[in-house]
Simulated assay, not measured.
Amino acid sequence: MQPAARPLAPTYQDRRWELPPDAVVRHGNVDDAARVLESRTLTVLTGAGISTDSGIPDYRSPDSPPRNPMTYQQFVGDDGFRRHYWARNHVGWQHVHRTHPNAGHRVLADLERRGVVRGVITQNVDLLHEDAGSRTVIDLHGRYDRVICLQCSRVISRAHLAERLDALNPGFVESVLDGGTTVADIEVAPDADAVIERTSHFRPADCEFCGGVLKPEIVYFGENVPRERVRQAFELVDSADALLVAGTSLTVMSGLRFVRHAAKAGMPVVVVNRGETRGDPLATVKVDAGVTETLTALAERL
């Protein structure tokens, strides 16, 4: 019997939240956002919503199917769950590592070259900001292209692990994609977790140096963002005159804390996202619209 692919109960971060009834949300449009941000330098905080136009679905947009991302406790505590996860990730990797930046990523890279954007703090692990040419990027939740051993702390590339997993599981990806299905047809989460079920025969790989457990170098639910990375992110926020938030519902504190920090310091905060976010009451302007088109239009006005 295969282990459950998702938590049986929601974690704290997954619980539904609603804006308090007395919250004041300053809704506006691109012109309103541009008036707030013009002649200012920006730090940008991004989430999964900026990558949807690159073919990577998000977790919490109004049209997204319900998902409960894997927890750290599940990964380290259950051999069967790890096998199930690595099988799904091995298929999802085929999709995510072939994705490309979209216009939203490219706009932010261009604004950095122009000196408008100081840098990007991203909650994504897809590296599309770097691929688009952004130079100052803090990958808050890690990177999907690296794997770490939980015992000896060695880091290897995900591409190298893919070669080992292919050798251990010849024909596995092809067996998942039978009947003319392609990787693009399979639902893939932002952490490269593909929605497949037939995983009981998959063989995961241990660390080739010490035999320890391998884990993607990604911060999972129930795990803390490294303290030094958080410090650098706060410094990046403080180095700018305003904070622009794009494509995140700010459901988890790892991103929301930067909005709270900026608002407490009196910095203008502009939030661009489809649907409500936990940062809306703190925003100077909230633009309820698609990220790519909004960032493109905003760049033309800055």
Rank of each mutant, 00 (worst) to 15 (best):
P62Q: 13
L298G: 03
D131L: 12
V176Y: 02
A109F: 04
G55R: 01
G290A: 14
L37S: 05
V271C: 11
D166S: 12
V173G: 01
K286E: 04
G49W: 01
T43Y: 03
G266V: 13
L19Y: 03
P10C: 05
R35I: 01
Y12M: 08
T136G: 00
P10T: 05
G247R: 02
N89F: 11
I148A: 12
S157F: 03
N169P: 08
G133T: 10
V269E: 02
Q73R: 15
T52C: 02
V25C: 11
L236H: 11
W86C: 02
D166Q: 13
L298N: 03
L37Y: 11
H261A: 09
T41W: 13
V225H: 04
E197R: 14
G28D: 09
R158P: 05
R257T: 11
R40K: 15
T292K: 13
P20C: 01
D131R: 15
D53Q: 13
L214V: 01
Q151N: 13
D206C: 03
L161Q: 05
V245F: 01
T71M: 12
V270Y: 04
N224V: 06
N68G: 09
V147R: 06
G171I: 08
P3T: 08
Y72M: 13
C207Y: 04
G211Q: 07
Y12H: 08
R158D: 05
P62S: 14
Q232C: 09
L127I: 07
G133A: 12
R16G: 07
V44C: 05
V287F: 02
D110V: 09
I50A: 00
Y59I: 03
W86N: 03
G47L: 03
S64A: 15
D32L: 06
S254L: 01
L128A: 00
V76G: 02
P226V: 00
R114M: 13
V107P: 00
L243P: 14
L244Q: 04
A184H: 12
D78R: 06
M267C: 06
V176I: 15
D139M: 01
P57D: 01
A23H: 10
V259W: 09
R278N: 03
D110Q: 14
Q74M: 15
G211N: 11
V259N: 10
D22Q: 14
L108Y: 10
K215D: 09
V183M: 07
Q74R: 15
V36Q: 08
A23Y: 05
G290F: 00
G212K: 10
M267F: 07
